[in-house]
Design a protein around this nucleic acid. Structure first.
Lengths: 172, 172
DNA sequence: AATTTTAGTCAAGTCTCCTTGACAATTTAG
DNA sequence: CTAAATTGTCAAGGAGACTTGACTAAAATT
């Protein structure tokens, strides 16, 4: 690295007003903050999990399934509807999560065609370890930024999610 | 839908303690909320942009570049380092953003090999319109969840980002 | 001046995540 | 009982977001 120290700082030849508009736009963006935090958090959380090689690793997409699972079990079709993706896609995710012994499929007693998808009775450490890890990670972050802020974050995100979901599905 | 009304509510045959741990874990996850909000927000923001057909559309991946751009211009290699991806990948994103007249490449006066990537001088409406859209979108969301919550969200995310960045680069 | 590094690019390939199409097993409706 | 609809699965495929490898031009090092 032999650059002469002027790594940044001055704008070469751009209109100051234009520059200011950009600065403003960048600074104001809650969205940008959100994106960046989400990416970093996801990366660091996943990196914490020791993943046994060979069997399919847990991937970001898998986590999106959990919040839509009823504890009594949920049908594939219903899951697909909630996630807004095809049932084949869900099927694949569930296949993998089943291999990891995180989820299990049991026959639906009330319908011979259907199966209920639910958390595995004897999760192969993957699930509970993973969740415990995540919890611990979140606690650490809570300490880092302060409990009140963490609570405020939780609250605000919950509200934001509702607002966003209302937009994407104005009907359902 | 002929299920006899027991869509959820009671757990068939699972250990209550286990069930509670799961419920807790699900409810507690700030991370899940964060991921989902970020994804929805990015998708919806991009979807709002009226995209001229033919030329490459702006896609969610593109937005990740902006926060790392210095207004004076940033080199491709530096951008790649900041984003944590290969310079070829960045090159592709920048190619597309250049075609859309959102960014431009100018030769780096201090190094004949290098080019500086920066916001286009005459953005083809895409950029400024896009930023204006984003601002408006955020304002709408602010109304939806309430101004205080929005402020709290902004504050908490800022703090969280710092905490996360400190972790990922304890040295640099 | 000769050698090694560095900045950016071209080409090709991979991995993830999701889609469409076709299908057998059941259930429900007529 | 037969016809239509629904549940889940198998198979193939595609778009997006990267990656690795090979290479040129310019700069720094020796």
């Amino acid at each position: 690295m032999a650059r002469t120290g002027k790594k940044r700082g001055n704008t070469p030849d751009q209109d100051p007003a234009f520059v200011e508009r950009l600065e403003q736009a960048k600074a104001a963006s809650v969205a940008q903050l959100l994106f960046k935090c989400a990416r970093l958090l996801n990366e660091q959380a996943v990196a914490r999990l020791e993943q046994p090689p060979g069997v399919p690793r847990i991937r970001p997409a898998h986590t999106s399934v959990f919040p839509h699972l009823d504890l009594a079990g949920t049908r594939l079709t219903e899951l697909a509807r909630r996630l807004g993706i095809s049932k084949q896609a869900v099927g694949q995710l569930v296949d993998e999560l089943e291999q990891m012994q995180v989820l299990e499929r049991v026959p639906d007693p009330s319908d011979g065609r259907a199966k209920l998808i639910r958390f595995a009775k004897a999760p192969g450490r993957s699930l509970l370890d993973g969740l415990a890890h995540l919890r611990r990670f979140e606690q650490e972050l809570g300490v880092a930024i302060g409990a009140p802020r963490m609570a405020a974050l939780h609250d605000a995100l919950g509200a934001l999610l509702v607002a966003l979901e209302d937009r994407s599905t104005p009907s359902a």
